[in-house]
């Protein structure tokens, strides 16, 4: 079995390394540092860590102020609270003035598990993607997460990084090159393009194996940057394969599936299906059970692939 690491763990570890290299990096949390994994940074750099208490709105606007005097703040809490409770602070105090704040939100998606729907963000990509000037990263594994954190610190402006609670397979080697805004073709194919993000990238690779056994050649595109979307790579994949399935641990409304549909409908319409949470809230259960329950498995992706292939002219 391949090694599994949660992207939040990779975040916490990379943050400590980043803190050593860059003294301008400061970290804010809202009483969830043990869960978001910022507590390692706190232990190493207590002066540069601010526990803001359970007050997410104030945390985001305080981060804006820190950025305004030259710091590079990483603000962390669960994705539901970051993008929901503090939405308007992100909009007006961070994005509108294009301040250099990094929002590293953990516990995104249904793989939060037992805590249930109140804690499972299925709409955060949609919300963050709608904000002008916001960069949106959704890393697929620990390697991408570390690279995304580094890239976020380099980018001048607001960045949203979507991280998960549960362990996910490590897909990339040490030599992996993360280029913001450039999707990665993990597998070449000609019959169908599986375009995935976050933890669904590993699931899409699994689906491609299943399809290969049936003689179907599936391309797998890893979209770690939802915004700016790699329009070129998405259109190329659609052109090459003539059919597309998107996969995300997020609502089918407003996330990767929407972004791809928007792009293809303008540039190169092909039969398409979106795998994602179908306009409903999450619920309690084990992460694996929930992925099954919400139709987020390799079986579901493979089934969608067969359907879109059948629709090809």
């Amino acid at each position: 079995m391949t090694k599994k690491i949660a992207t939040r763990d990779a975040y916490g570890q990379e943050l400590v390394r980043l803190g050593a290299d860059n003294k301008d990096v400061v970290v804010l949390d809202a009483d969830l540092s043990k869960s978001t994994k910022t507590h390692d940074f706190m232990k190493n750099y207590p002066d540069r860590f601010f526990n803001m208490g359970i007050a997410e709105s104030n945390m985001m606007a305080t981060a804006a102020g820190l950025a305004a005097v030259g710091k590079i703040p990483f603000a962390s809490t669960f994705a539901v609270f970051a993008t929901g409770r503090a939405f308007e602070q992100i909009r007006n105090s961070i994005c509108y003035p294009r301040l250099n704040v990094k929002i590293a939100a953990t516990h995104a998606g249904v793989t939060v598990g037992e805590d249930g729907g109140s804690h499972q963000s299925v709409e955060d990509i949609a919300i963050m993607r709608a904000l002008p000037g916001m960069t949106v990263f959704v890393p697929a594994d620990a390697v991408e997460t570390a690279a995304a954190i580094r890239a976020a610190a380099e980018i001048k402006g607001p960045v949203y990084i979507r991280l998960g609670r549960s362990g996910v397979p490590v897909l990339h080697g040490e030599d992996f090159k993360f280029i913001p805004g450039e999707a990665v073709t993990l597998r070449e194919g000609t019959d169908v393009a599986l375009i995935a993000t976050g933890i669904m990238v590993a699931v899409a690779l699994e689906a491609a194996e299943t399809l290969a056994a049936e003689g179907i050649s599936a391309l797998v595109l890893d979209v770690h940057t939802i915004k700016p979307l790699d329009i070129f790579a998405v259109v190329e994949a659609a052109r090459k394969c003539g059919a597309v399935v998107t996969a995300e641990e997020h609502s089918i409304i407003g996330g990767l599936g929407s972004a791809v549909a928007e792009t293809l409908s303008e540039h190169h319409p092909v039969p398409m299906q979106r795998i994602g949470v179908r306009d409903t809230f999450g619920e309690s259960g084990k992460p694996e059970e929930l992925l099954q329950h919400f139709g987020l498995t390799a079986t579901h992706i493979a089934e969608a692939a067969r359907k879109v292939i059948a629709k090809k002219k």
Binding site: V26, D47, R48, F50, S57, N58, M60, A61, T62, A63, A64, G65, L66, A67, A68, V69, G70, K71, P73, E88, Q89, N92, S93
Partner: peptide, 15 residues
């Protein structure tokens, strides 16, 4: 929102 931003500035400048 401005008081929070001012707080962030003051914290950063104090660092």
């Amino acid at each position: 929102q401005g008081l929070s931003a001012a707080l962030g500035m003051a914290l950063g400048l104090r660092l």
